[in-house]
Lab assay of single mutants.
Amino acid sequence: MQRVNMIMAESPGLITICLLGYLLSAECTVFLDHENANKILNRPKRYNSGKLEEFVQGNLERECMEEKCSFEEAREVFENTERTTEFWKQYVDGDQCESNPCLNGGSCKDDINSYECWCPFGFEGKNCELDVTCNIKNGRCEQFCKNSADNKVVCSCTEGYRLAENQKSCEPAVPFPCGRVSVSQTSKLTRAETVFPDVDYVNSTEAETILDNITQSTQSFNDFTRVVGGEDAKPGQFPWQVVLNGKVDAFCGGSIVNEKWIVTAAHCVETGVKITVVAGEHNIEETEHTEQKRNVIRIIPHHNYNAAINKYNHDIALLELDEPLVLNSYVTPICIADKEYTNIFLKFGSGYVSGWGRVFHKGRSALVLQYLRVPLVDRATCLRSTKFTIYNNMFCAGFHEGGRDSCQGDSGGPHVTEVEGTSFLTGIISWGEECAMKGKYGIYTKVSRYVNWIKEKTKLT
């Protein structure tokens, strides 16, 4: 034993070699072989497995989906700052455009905790909710729209109204504003409101030439003092309507412009014939205590009207009353817009006519005020429907199939267009061939041609 100890002390290297040989010859039971080890760690190889990531292109799944990435790591994937920024906006807080917040056709661009709407022409605001041009839906104005110097929408209202708090709607500024039905039992019968379409306001006024200088022999019209197929109006439903009495009662109609003036057809009036105007009328054979009678003290036909040349060209006249009318729910003026808007309103496509005229061709006159909704007829169809001249200051309205029309005794009465609950004068009943005849239409004086003249002559002093 002493000898062994001496050998170990003198030859430590020998001992180490012996131990190493023993270990190498022993069977290893701690580690699995290569094949079995792979069965336990069965993990798919990654895209760049075996390579240094710093030297390969980034992978979106590896960089940002398996674990949260930084902007720089995302930049490695896209290799483009702009594309990385677009991805980053949604990656950080989701897609803010998912709810489609942009209105009126706006395009949404996502941002971090926010979004941006790219608005089409005519709109602005956070969600493109603000109209900035009158060309689109009248700028959301209830009545009139004008573009300011910086191309912003400025709404306005006709006389007797003021802008509401929203700067879009119009509200009454006087007790009985024009064009409004205020009798409670008839307010439910107000005709369907007309909503502004998209309009090209630059070209809204037709490029028409008034044929002022045409000389033409007097034409022989049949029954051209021209509501057939209409309905009984309720008291106060058309408070701007008046009836004219002269040699015979209810020979023509008219509309209240203001307390002192009536507008009617020029062919209705004769110099030297006494005319009485009755406002607030409903049943011409009954006294309903809503009527107001006034005498006409002055007749002003349009300066281009000449019955000797043509009885229905420039067929418009103004009547001055001896005493002002007292405005109330049964006696209310009709609204008159400017030339541009009167023309736009007419193009809405349908209007209402009213009167006490004959209820059928050569038949009896109506006792109760009649009204009828009539569609506008395109000019080409209008011209083809008659052998008589249709001037540019006239328009056609009615039904091709016949059966409904204005008729004798309705002449001078109103053709009105309702705009968001307020009625505007767009025409004056003038003439036609018979009444409600198939293929024939009622012919009306186009008020847009005469609004400046009306307003100039009827100013209240």
Rank of each mutant, 00 (worst) to 15 (best):
K126N: 10
D93A: 07
F395W: 01
G349R: 05
Y312K: 06
F360T: 14
N5T: 12
T158E: 04
C382M: 02
E129Y: 02
L372P: 03
K347G: 13
T133Q: 14
S423A: 10
E433R: 07
F221G: 06
I275F: 11
D212M: 08
N295R: 14
N203E: 09
W431L: 08
Q185K: 11
M65H: 11
T209H: 12
N452L: 05
F123C: 00
E82Q: 15
D315A: 02
N306G: 03
Q408M: 13
F71A: 06
R298H: 05
E259T: 06
N222A: 14
E208W: 08
Q167R: 08
Y441E: 00
L52T: 15
G363C: 04
E288I: 05
I40H: 14
S365H: 14
F196E: 12
E286L: 11
D232F: 08
E67F: 04
T29A: 08
R162I: 11
K446W: 01
T225S: 07
R75W: 04
K459V: 12
S406F: 15
R83Q: 14
C157S: 00
Q96R: 15
L189G: 10
E67N: 09
V359A: 15
G105Y: 03
N166W: 01
Q408L: 14
I17F: 08
F123I: 04
E340L: 10
N38Q: 13
N59E: 09
S182W: 09
N452A: 13
F196S: 14
F144Y: 07
C119T: 01
F87L: 06
E418D: 15
D322F: 02
S182I: 08
G427S: 00
I297T: 09
A380Y: 14
I299H: 06
K137I: 05
L319C: 07
N295G: 08
G280F: 02
V419C: 04
D150Q: 10
N166H: 02
Y161H: 04
Y161T: 01
D223M: 12
V243M: 05
A26P: 02
G230V: 13
Y161N: 01
Y47N: 15
Q57G: 11
L60N: 15
I262R: 01
W261H: 02
V195E: 14
N147F: 11
Y444L: 05
C170K: 02
S411T: 14
S182M: 13
G160E: 03
E434A: 14
A192E: 11
H282W: 14
V451I: 08
L163V: 08
K188A: 12
N5Q: 12
A366N: 15
H314V: 03
L60M: 13
E193G: 14
K146F: 10
S217P: 12
F251I: 13
T158V: 12
C102F: 00
V181T: 13
N245K: 13
R298W: 03
F388S: 11
H415C: 02
K39M: 11
D378F: 02
F224H: 10
D405I: 14
A317T: 03
H267Q: 06
T218A: 06
C382Y: 02
E288D: 10
R404E: 06
E73Y: 07
G125E: 00
M437P: 07
C97T: 01
A233Q: 06
D249S: 13
G357T: 15
T264I: 03
T264Q: 00
A9H: 13
A436M: 12
I316E: 00
K446G: 09
G21N: 09
C155I: 00
E54C: 04
